[in-house]
Design a binder for these strands. Structure first.
Lengths: 218, 218
DNA sequence: TTATTATTTTTGGCGTACCAAAAAAATAAT
DNA sequence: ATTATTTTTTTGGTACGCCAAAAATAATAA
């Protein structure tokens, strides 16, 4: 009991409800999990029986506290592994997710403890996402990805999650240097490009680049 | 395709045929895999269809070269992980097997490559068992566990796989010191104790202890 | 409000991996 | 060689996780 399938459902519900146990619908789940909605209906019924979610017919699903707790341990395992793969084994930040998708299902508390220890108990993974601690507590911070920033907001560039020379050249060209203050003007409807003001100049940042820039909310 | 179940069958067939693609019977497999023989019959039929084994009704099963190749990659993954857990993460040699049973099913060649690299491409795992290389080639050595030694054989004590003080005391008491030459007299029918001559004295070694003593065949 | 579209659920089915019990075959013992 | 024992296979059945197609429900637009 507590199959990989169940773990993937819980994790996905967690992500879709943005950690708030908000209601998630079947279509969203079906899309993320690459199954058809009928399959989701079956699954959430079972999760309900297991008291891991509250499922209301034709309405939606949300995590129970038991389900949320379990989801957080999956997320923790995933992010610890991502960090380990990147920091200790030299994988690129773009490679780690896929491998961690498999490794997150290894059920051994001591293993995760050892990995975390070796890493110095990090609070954030290579993508800048927070790593829940053993109790599921998440250290919240003002650091977000530029891609998550909102129009009219003021931010400060704090770091990057891609260290390739191509990307660093890109930043230089757009005058986005660490420590620079920025203000978001708009986000393009068409392609989600971010139009922002930095160093008094207006620049346009692609969504792909925005994924790799960490900013602090001011 | 290439489920965990299939991997476990191939690995188990490999072990039971001691790497020689010798014939294995259903009962043995059923015992090792903790399923009933009927389940094994079904499974080996399917493996046969996949051309991973040759299964002859009411006779037995042996690996094909494709099956053997696949088995060797599982064994490699298992032993690389065992070594990594022991050498890099500080797990005891008695803890690593169980965790490696799960980790061995992670399918990512680059991951194993990185682990092996970090370990300096070891040829033997913490139990003294050989680690197949990427091509499945096994470095054979004259080193075996004392538990695998045969009566009348001459050996030299080369090392141990347990470093607990309790075990080292045991060795001292029995006068088995590294470098000492030994000759196996007999193996007790009753409990598999090994009666051997070492330093001109006859001693009896329990099967459990014999598992932890590495000897060289002379 | 009614029609249209989107989402959800029901129903019937499939493959994998297992089991129990009974029948068949092979092996060992007398 | 005949019985007894062990091993293997067959048969019928279960749980899980999935799909396709049809029916029911909800949401949106006209």
């Amino acid at each position: 009991m507590q199959s990989e399938t169940i773990e993937n459902y819980l994790k996905t519900i967690y992500h879709l409800s943005s950690g708030n146990s908000a209601i998630v619908n079947n279509k969203q789940l079906a899309d993320k999990l690459h199954v058809i909605p009928a399959t989701v209906t079956e699954a959430v019924k079972k999760l309900h029986d297991l008291k891991l979610v509250v499922y209301e017919k034709s309405y939606g699903t949300r995590l129970t506290s038991a389900g949320s707790k379990m989801a957080l341990t999956i997320v923790r395992r995933h992010r610890i592994w991502e960090t380990y793969l990147a920091n200790e084994l030299g994988f690129g930040w773009d490679e780690v997710h896929e491998i961690a998708e498999e490794l997150e299902h290894i059920k051994n508390d001591k293993l995760i403890k050892k990995l975390s220890e070796k890493l110095g108990h990090p609070n954030f993974d290579p993508h800048g996402d927070p790593i829940p601690d053993e109790k599921g507590k998440i250290q919240k911070s003002n650091f977000i990805k530029l891609s998550e920033a909102k129009p009219k907001g003021a931010y400060k560039v704090m770091g990057v999650t891609d260290h390739s020379t191509a990307f660093l050249k890109y930043l230089e060209k757009h005058q986005l240097i660490i420590g620079a203050g920025i203000i978001i003007k708009t986000i393009e409807e068409f392609d989600n490009s971010i139009i922002l003001v930095c160093q008094k100049k207006e620049v346009s940042i692609s969504p792909k680049a925005a994924e790799c820039i960490i900013v602090e909310m001011l």
